[in-house]
């Protein structure tokens, strides 16, 4: 099939950027969206045009690199699908497809469709971990965790950190991302010890990195390729409420947590 693409082209962070029109010829329905872009790029290279820069790595839907807003939806219209797992059979011959990068102040465009998502890493660095060594893999059932909690913690841990939640959010908020990590660790005994300071430092870091506030549009849940639910944001809010009235204790432990960071 043949398609008309409108692709965001931007030389670098300082360039203003614009949408440019390209024709994609001979695309088969079995191709993934990224393979379609590979074909278009081969064509561009033959014409001595700069190929479209886009992020990709595993191409099996687990690395979270492919960051494209396709026809106004992060990762495209298909539910719980990353761009690499989106196949061309979902499009029709003659379709016009708009491809744009994630847009948020915290995600500056590096080139074309590639954005810098390291702001998410800095939220994790602020507190999305357990600071003490919890030992090797424990024997099965040596730490008893209710089945429900284990399941929910796993659901939260499914987040691949792709940033689609931020891209979809009208406020550019990373609350679903932060909530997934806060919830994942707060539901397991190893993570509960530092749950209070974690929720504080991670939400604080989120604002420092230039993300917006959550106003409960729930766009994030709909865009998430892993189906992370907004009930985890409610869980994060509960974890935050639990910390109220404990400010003194927590701020000193926040400093301690910073001390435990490995020096670079």
């Amino acid at each position: 099939m043949n398609l008309t693409l409108y692709v965001w082209r931007q030389k670098n962070a300082d360039d203003r950027g614009r949408l440019e029109q390209y024709e994609a010829h001979g695309i088969s329905p079995e191709m993934s969206f990224l393979e379609m872009l590979d074909i278009v790029n081969e064509d561009l290279i033959k014409k001595a045009t700069e190929p479209i820069a886009f992020d990709h790595d595993c191409r099996e839907g687990i690395c979270g690199s492919c960051s494209q807003v396709i026809n106004g939806v992060p990762h495209g219209q298909e539910e719980k699908t990353s761009v690499c797992q989106l196949h061309m059979r979902h499009f029709k011959d003659g379709d016009a497809i708009y491809i744009e990068p994630w847009r948020a102040r915290a995600f500056p465009v590096i080139k074309d469709l590639i954005v810098d998502r390291s702001a998410l890493d800095r939220i994790i660095q602020a507190g999305g971990y357990i600071s003490s060594h919890t030992g090797g893999v424990p024997d099965a059932n040596s730490i008893l965790i209710p089945k429900d909690d284990a399941e929910k913690a796993m659901d939260a841990a499914e987040c691949i950190g792709c940033g689609a939640c931020v891209a979809a959010c009208p406020n550019g908020s990373a609350m679903l991302f932060a909530a997934a990590k806060v919830s994942h660790l707060a539901m397991l005994p190893q993570g509960q010890v530092e749950a209070a300071r974690r929720v504080r430092v991670m939400t604080e870091e989120m604002m420092k990195q230039g993300f917006g506030n959550c106003t409960n549009h729930y766009e994030c849940q709909a865009a998430c390729p892993k189906g992370i639910k907004v009930s985890f944001i409610a869980k994060l809010n509960r974890e935050f409420i639990k910390t109220l009235g404990r400010s003194g204790k927590i701020s000193s432990s926040v400093d301690r947590m910073a001390d435990t960071l490995p020096s670079e």
């Binding site: 807003v69 744009e100 847009r103 102040r105 406020n171 506030n213 729930y218």
Partner: peptide, 22 residues
């Protein structure tokens, strides 16, 4: 704060769950 966190608009943006009210 939320406006400044989203300075650039998409050429096309579909609302999946957000409503006119929200």
């Amino acid at each position: 704060e939320n406006r400044s966190a989203k300075p650039d608009a998409y050429a096309i943006k579909k609302s999946l769950r957000a409503t006119f009210a929200s």
